[in-house]
Design a binder for these strands. Structure first.
Lengths: 183, 183
DNA sequence: TCAGTCATGTAGCAATCGCTACAGAATAAC
DNA sequence: GTTATTCTGTAGCGATTGCTACATGACTGA
């Protein structure tokens, strides 16, 4: 593996950490370079332009989300919607996952500003939706895709509330949703 | 009313429209000034700094949200959670309200970058939550605040999904949530 | 009429943005 | 040992950012 490829790998890992720490608020080339321990000049040697840098770093973050999902409910296992939602909500509000969802919300918000965020937002949602759809235990005739998106929306909504009101409040909301679904 | 105050009023109205059109993606002083039909120099004559400009414009947008809510369920009327959520979800996905919620999501995402967005995000959520709490028809002993936040989270989640997947998808999710709550 | 506040345009500052030209160092190829 | 390729630092470009100094017109109260 060439030096260039090794450095790309190292840089992407550091940038993913940086995104989890600071979101999209510190993402000038010079700030990214500093977080990655290289010069801005070198960042643009490893990657063709800033969009490629951001794409690589965000895809790494998205990968950590998918890894957490894989651990949460293994492939092949299915759950009824309220149970799956409950599992996902718990994971979303876990301290180590909160940063991931904060970044996710920021990417969706940034989607309006164009590429690469529009594509990234759609891709992440798409992957997440397929994961949920594959793990839903549904009665015949139910709309699997729509139910999956519904669960996603609730999870994202909890994350969003967590951002501006704190985890405790979001935790209370998650409990309330559980009860609404049971009763 | 002084010229200055008249201009402030006119500028705020135009900027609110601008925000609904373009979100937070076109918000340099010069871009705002252009949208308001004045020079950037004058914007900073009407307002002390950029943060004050943004605050005024965003509060105007938030006002239009509260107005829509007042029309949706008048004061004094209460509904059980699933019914209230259904009403809110329908309103959220209405074509004329979609821009309002897009801006809301962007403000929450921007909260991490500091003021004035952090305060604005918290304030808007707070007003929205109180509105919901006051219109909830709940059994005795239920956690009113938590249930209100839960409904809010679902509404915001639908808006977020609408942003990256389109209104149709979000509409399907809203229907699925209705069914989860009924069945 | 004349001083004084209000209103507005012109011009530009220092900082930061993404990006690049250029040169030199290191390494590999033969 | 020479040549060619890969790597990396310095320096800076033109554009954009939030904001301001300065001057001048417009209106107002005495």
């Amino acid at each position: 593996m060439s030096t260039r490829e090794q450095q790309r790998e190292k840089v992407v890992a550091l940038l993913a950490e940086h995104l989890l720490d600071t979101g999209l608020s510190q993402t000038s080339l010079r700030q990214l370079a500093s977080a990655a321990g290289v010069s801005d000049r070198m960042l643009l040697y490893y990657f063709p332009d800033k969009a490629a840098v951001m794409t690589a770093a965000i895809e790494r973050v998205a990968g950590s989300l998918m890894a957490a999902l894989a651990y949460l409910v293994p492939e092949g296992v299915t759950l009824p919607p309220p149970a799956l939602l409950s599992q996902l909500a718990t994971m979303t509000l876990r301290e180590d996952m909160q940063p991931v969802f904060r970044v996710r919300v920021e990417i969706v918000a940034a989607a309006r500003s164009g590429e690469p965020f529009a594509t990234l937002a759609a891709t992440i949602l798409s992957g997440f939706r397929e994961w949920v759809a594959a793990r839903l235990d549904l009665p015949a005739g139910a709309d699997r895709a729509a139910t999956a998106v519904a669960i996603l929306a609730i999870v994202d909504g909890l994350a969003l509330v967590g951002i501006c009101s704190g985890t405790d409040t979001a935790q209370g909301a998650a409990t309330a949703i559980d009860q609404l679904l049971q009763g």
